[in-house]
Amino acid sequence: MKAFYEKVSHAGGHSFGYSSFSLPRFNAPFHYHPELELTLIEKSQGKRLVGGHVAHYEAGDLVLLGPNIPHCWLNAEVEPPEMDAAQAIVIHFRADFAGETFLTLPELMAIQQLFQKAQAGLLIKGKTRDIAAEKMRSGLHLQGFPRLLLLFDLLHGIALSSETERIDLFFSQQVLSPVETERFQRIYTFLIENFRENISLEQMAQIANLSPTAFCRYFKKITRKTFVDALTEFRIKHACQLLASSEKPVQEICFESGFGNVSYFNKEFKKALGQTPLQYRKYHLSLPLVASKP
């Protein structure tokens, strides 16, 4: 997986992209693009990466991303594999897709402010999410002007809601040069691909083209985490997915997630989540089954 600049294209006669996907797994790598992106996960669960933030996602996850935020959705393994294990509706649009001065209209001030908030990535929750999800589904059956109106209605509803949460405000406040942006993507792409392996500080420093000391300072400045903390976070998130979605023994999950021994795994897991891996699994097994759509 290589972080890259993605050129988002639209079908002829359209000013923004509106697509649905049904795949065995999401295949977009850690990437970025100048378009804003509104993504509704219809089916799937796993890890969502936005900027330097890692979080669990599941069906119903709805996120608005501002321009040039590196991101990807990593599926948890599904056993047995399913051809439609990953389903999503995705809308791509430029901030000025309706014209450079359009958002300066007083009636669109809320949407303009929404785009500013989305620079940090925005998680949409509660009733707002449910209403927005239904609108996004209905938009799949529209074309032309009705779909354009629906997009503005969708964005306006999110803009007026208090049921939103910024995902990585700190990352959005970093003013990174193109060189530093590329360096960060290179580092995080390597982490995404290799967190289950034995990664050394020297190895990461070489990838970043920095000395080990300079790399530690750089990583902490961008993410507010030490490299070891970030690596542990990736491993814990992966272990959580396996505990909740498989019957694999804890010892097997420990090593499959990149931890060297079970005692250390149990210690770090409890420090991060306040419960042991077995307690986490027992809790998730007790949850009622829910439909794949919110």
Rank of each mutant, 00 (worst) to 15 (best):
D61V: 02
Q112E: 15
K117D: 15
A76W: 00
Q112S: 12
L105E: 13
E107Q: 11
Q116G: 07
Q87S: 08
E79N: 11
A88I: 07
G121Y: 08
M109Y: 10
A76H: 05
D61F: 09
Q119W: 01
E100D: 11
A76Y: 01
E79H: 07
A86H: 03
P106W: 07
Q112H: 14
Q119E: 14
D84W: 04
G66A: 11
Q119Y: 02
L108Y: 15
L74M: 14
R137Y: 01
A110R: 06
D96M: 11
F102T: 07
A88S: 13
V78S: 04
M136R: 03
L64Y: 04
Q87K: 15
F93C: 07
F93W: 15
F93Y: 11
E79W: 13
T101F: 10
P106I: 11
M136V: 07
Q116H: 13
D84H: 13
E134D: 09
I69F: 09
R129Q: 14
D130A: 11
A59Y: 06
I111S: 01
N75R: 13
A85D: 03
R129F: 02
K127Q: 15
T101H: 02
Q116V: 11
A120W: 01
G60A: 10
E100A: 09
L122I: 08
A118Y: 02
A88C: 12
A132C: 09
A98Y: 10
A95R: 14
E134M: 10
I89N: 00
A85F: 03
Q113P: 01
T104H: 09
L105F: 13
D96E: 13
V90L: 11
E100S: 06
A59H: 09
T101A: 07
D96W: 09
G126R: 13
N75P: 08
D96Q: 12
K127R: 13
C72D: 02
E107D: 14
I124T: 08
G121V: 12
R129Y: 09
A132I: 03
A88Q: 03
S138D: 12
I69M: 06
L103F: 12
A133S: 15
C72R: 12
I89D: 00
D130T: 05
E82T: 06
Q112F: 07
G121C: 09
G99F: 09
A132P: 03
Q113T: 14
A110N: 08
I124D: 06
L74R: 02
R94S: 12
F93Q: 02
L123I: 11
E107I: 06
G121A: 12
L62T: 06
A95E: 09
D130G: 00
A86Y: 05
T101V: 01
E77V: 04
K117R: 15
F97Y: 14
A86C: 11
F97Q: 05
L122G: 02
I89V: 14
H71W: 05
P70W: 08
F115Y: 12
